[in-house]
């Protein structure tokens, strides 16, 4: 029987961490633990001594993990960013999905594949959710600014909402700018005058 692999998930959002945990447990029996406190990251990982560390590709704390790629003491187990030499695509797919895997020296690629596959599926989902959320948030913010700009115009010129929006659109077209940019300029200028 092979020893169970010990996997550490670095993730400060508990909901995301739970989802990654769940999909890894479906992929096989692993010893899982989660590190959520980024300020003690390297110390935590050194004491857990995992075989694999999974972390969001663009997590700023990855840069601190890079220290672990240097074995500074004789008993240290240096880790490396996982790159499968026999199947170069696996790492590329992982990076596209936004997950990076740090692996201890000498771990065989075939033991890793199901883990990376499971993590990739999760991170792909996170990425889609994040893109959608960002787009929705931006649209909402823009609507708020445009609504405020309309309100300012309605009050200042005694016009209705439709006329206020038409005014904003015309100004944007004349200046070759977006409606949101004109609205933003108006709101911040009005802030100075009030």
């Amino acid at each position: 029987m092979q020893r169970r692999l010990k996997i550490t998930i670095v993730e400060s959002d508990p909901a995301r961490a739970a989802l990654i945990e769940e999909s890894l447990l479906r992929a096989g029996p692993y010893d899982l633990n989660i590190v959520s406190d980024m300020t003690r990251l390297t110390a935590a990982i050194k004491s857990i001594n995992p075989d694999i560390v999974l972390i969001d590709l663009d997590n700023p704390s990855r840069d601190a993990l890079e220290e672990l790629t240097l074995a500074t003491a004789p008993l240290d187990r240096p880790v490396a960013l996982f790159v499968d030499q026999s199947d170069a695509n696996l790492t590329r797919i992982a990076i596209e999905a936004g997950v990076s895997a740090y692996v201890v020296d000498g771990l065989r690629a075939d033991r890793l594949k199901p883990i990376i596959d499971a993590a990739v599926a999760r991170f792909d989902m996170f990425r889609q959710m994040r893109t959608e959320l960002a787009a929705t948030k931006r649209a909402l913010e823009e609507r708020k600014v445009i609504d405020r700009a309309k309100g300012i115009l309605m009050k200042a010129k005694g016009i209705d909402e439709e006329a206020a929006y038409a005014l904003l659109r015309r100004a944007a077209m004349d200046q070759g700018r977006k409606v949101i940019d004109v609205a933003e300029a108006l709101v911040s200028t009005a802030g100075l005058l009030s």
Binding site: L57, D58, R92, I95, E96, S100
Partner: peptide, 16 residues
């Protein structure tokens, strides 16, 4: 825009 240097290095390495 990236938040980690290691992310930029890997994105260049793997062609993103």
């Amino acid at each position: 825009r990236a938040n980690a240097w290691s992310a930029l290095r890997d994105m260049v390495s793997f062609g993103q």
